[in-house]
């Protein structure tokens, strides 16, 4: 069970129609790979974020499968074209079944 998992997103508040905006996301997470052993020689069980999805007004922007080699506190930055005002929804799926969700509104003028 991962503790202190906090999602953060940075989306511009405003854009013009059809503009490409840069979106930054970060989630604090230990991303334990499942390859390491503790001091007693036991395998530390895998515990990672395995999927990250960003949608805009219900339409998929990115859908990422994340593997154990991704390091602590995964950071994703990507561009998206914004045709209209709306809401970005960001969802992270944890190995332990937890789902973390964050939203950000953007206004098109």
């Amino acid at each position: 069970m991962a503790e202190n998992v906090t999602p953060r997103v940075r989306v511009p508040r405003e854009a013009s129609a059809g503009e490409t905006v840069s979106i930054r996301t970060l989630i604090s997470h230990p991303m334990e790979s499942g390859q390491r052993r503790d001091s007693d020689g036991n395998v530390i069980p895998r515990s990672i974020i395995n999927r990250f999805v960003c949608t805009f007004n219900g339409e998929t922007v990115v859908d990422v499968t994340i593997e154990p080699s991704v390091s602590t506190n995964p950071y994703f930055q990507f561009d998206a074209v914004v045709p209209e005002s709306g809401t970005f929804t960001f969802i992270w799926y944890d190995d332990d079944g937890s789902v973390y969700e964050e939203t950000a509104d953007i206004a098109v003028n």
Binding site: N4, T6, R8, R10, R24, L26, S28, N73
Partner: peptide, 12 residues
């Protein structure tokens, strides 16, 4: 602050 990993610990 978004680029500063130290802020993750401050938030904890």
């Amino acid at each position: 602050d978004f680029e500063n990993p130290g802020m993750i610990f401050a938030d904890q």
